[in-house]
Simulated assay, not measured.
Amino acid sequence: MSEWRMRFEPVITPIFRTWWRMRRGMTLGVRGVALDSEGRILLVRHTYAAGWHLPGGGVEGGEAAIDAIMREMVEEGGVEATAPPALIGFFSNHANFPNDHIALYRFDAWRPCPPSSEGEIAERGFFAADALPEGVTKGTRRRIAELFEGAPLSAHW
């Protein structure tokens, strides 16, 4: 990512998101859960959004959700699927934007690869469910609690 884009990304991103969402009635994002050999969860911290998140992003026009998450995991997490990821579920993300939804996938078979995102990710790492970094987002914490700690499922991100 160019130095110019990195400097203006915090301003540009909200403007483009607002324009993009005004043009669409519903938005769909994807997030992925990948564990390392020690059972730790992959999380990323973006340069343009606060907090730690499960890797993922938006589904582009004409793109299937499964293709989007496979692309995003390579870009953000350096995770290349060696078998199709399993769909965990769909979650509403209306607190972020009305009619926003997130499809969550689990990567059971993958290999490391060089992340292809340039400048979008400030940090990435694997963390134990009981030793998450400071600043993990509420939605990410909710999914981790459901998947690894037996918390009741919620339809909301």
Rank of each mutant, 00 (worst) to 15 (best):
A131I: 05
E120R: 10
H46R: 13
A68Q: 06
E146M: 10
A109P: 11
F16A: 14
E134W: 11
H156V: 13
W20A: 11
A34P: 01
G139N: 04
I66Q: 11
A145D: 13
P112I: 04
A155Q: 09
L28F: 12
L42F: 04
T13L: 15
F107W: 03
K138C: 14
E123W: 03
P14I: 02
I66F: 10
S2R: 04
E120K: 07
S116N: 06
D36G: 03
A151M: 05
A109W: 07
H101I: 08
E80D: 06
M70P: 02
F107R: 04
V136Y: 01
G51W: 05
M1Q: 14
A50C: 14
R23M: 09
G58S: 12
F97P: 01
P112H: 01
I15V: 15
R21N: 10
S37V: 15
G139W: 01
P55A: 08
N99C: 06
N93Y: 15
A122T: 10
R21D: 09
A34Q: 03
F127V: 06
S116M: 05
V30A: 03
A83Y: 08
L43T: 03
I15G: 05
M26W: 12
A131Y: 10
A151D: 11
R106C: 03
A122I: 11
L132Q: 01
A95L: 09
V30L: 03
V79P: 05
R5D: 10
I102L: 13
E120I: 07
F91K: 08
G32R: 00
C113Y: 03
D100N: 14
S116V: 09
I88E: 09
F127R: 01
A64P: 08
I12C: 10
A34L: 02
M6C: 12
L153T: 14
R7P: 14
H94Q: 08
A81G: 01
G39Y: 02
E9G: 14
M70D: 08
D100T: 13
D130M: 01
W20D: 12
R31M: 12
L28N: 12
W19I: 15
C113K: 07
E118T: 09
I121G: 04
L35Y: 05
M73C: 02
M70W: 12
E80Q: 06
A128L: 02
R124H: 11
V59T: 09
L54D: 04
G150Q: 02
E3R: 15
A131G: 04
E120F: 10
A103C: 06
I144V: 10
P133E: 09
G150N: 05
Y48A: 09
I88Y: 04
